[in-house]
Computed example of a mutant assay.
Amino acid sequence: MYLFFRIAFSIISKRTNNLSKCLYQVPPCSINLQVNPFFSEIRIFPANLILHFEENASETVGLLHHFQPVKWKNAGLSTKQWIQRVLAVTKCSSLNEVLLFGKHDYDVFSVLNIVSKVCCLYIMPHCCNALAKEAVEVLSPVTSSITLFKVPFSNREEFQIFWMGNVECLSIYNDDLSSVQFSLNDLLASNAVKLELTDVPMSLRDLNRFFSCWLNRTSNHRLEHLSVKLLEDINEDVLLERLGATRFTEQRAREYQSTKTFPKFRKFTGGFFRSSNTFTEFIGGFDVRRIDGKLAAITFGNTLTKKLINFDVWP
């Protein structure tokens, strides 16, 4: 019985609901949950199934099964109950993504309290600060990756508590962090393993100082990847001053490209990196070595509108 039919089977009665929980389990991190002020949506990848719940639990539930639209009668369940039912039938204790576009008419966190892990949390641009802040506070302990299209903190102290937490991967887009007076000292104090900053003002001299601190082991020891997008042109002399950087040879570049630890780079030809997926051309790569012998790579190039600098620690 396909998952599509098992979910339908579960809403016939309490007995079929209990029986359906014994029939199926999706692989971990195979479900995405999207919460919007006007609807919620669940996407289940192994089953090619999308369930769409309108605001205030309308009389029908919209589904897309193998790209074919279907409508079910609501069967008296609220949006919250529908999501709980799907999570129960799939026996899914870990979600792939939770995307918060805004507040719905149910408490999303009471639904997620049975979830042991959320691989990726996305706070979208128009999500209200109260919901975004609560999501970060509640889900950070079970989330390995957080992407913020807005920073919801009202003061610098709140931001610093979050910033120095133990989130493994943190990405910040379209927010210059001026509201929390972000500076180089914050970058040095970060505890993230992977960090991506877009539109956060960082000068080449700031990045040079950051790299110098890493080489001297006076910055984040957990850091494995840093990506920064800038508006200014990249001056190698300023960026690499006193770092003892060694330019990649073609052989070294190929070795770098073949290491899956560095997913930003896809192809090496003719002295530069090109990524057709992100429309990014990467020019130049340099090795730098920390005082304890740990090796890292500094690479940089151009996107369509910005300059990109990556810093990756070799495994």
Rank of each mutant, 00 (worst) to 15 (best):
I146Q: 09
S219G: 06
N18C: 14
H126R: 14
H225L: 09
I83K: 07
T259Y: 03
S227I: 09
G301W: 03
E158N: 02
T303M: 09
F282Q: 08
C120K: 14
E196Y: 07
Y106F: 10
L195M: 10
F149W: 04
I83H: 02
S10Q: 02
T261G: 12
N174E: 14
G102D: 11
K294N: 12
N174R: 12
V35Y: 04
F210I: 07
N96C: 04
L33G: 12
E255K: 14
L187C: 05
H221T: 14
F182I: 02
N220P: 14
S94Q: 12
L239R: 09
K133Q: 08
E134H: 02
T90S: 05
P125V: 01
H225K: 10
N96M: 08
A135W: 00
L99M: 01
S178W: 04
I44F: 03
F248K: 09
V228N: 01
K294G: 08
A296D: 01
L308A: 14
W214M: 05
E281Y: 04
V193K: 09
V151W: 05
V70N: 03
I114G: 07
E158G: 03
R209M: 10
I123W: 01
W163Y: 15
K267M: 09
T60K: 15
T79H: 06
S171V: 06
F268L: 07
F273H: 12
M1W: 07
L239S: 10
D312C: 14
L19R: 10
G284Q: 12
N32F: 07
L99S: 11
I11P: 03
L184W: 04
E224L: 15
L148M: 11
I12Q: 06
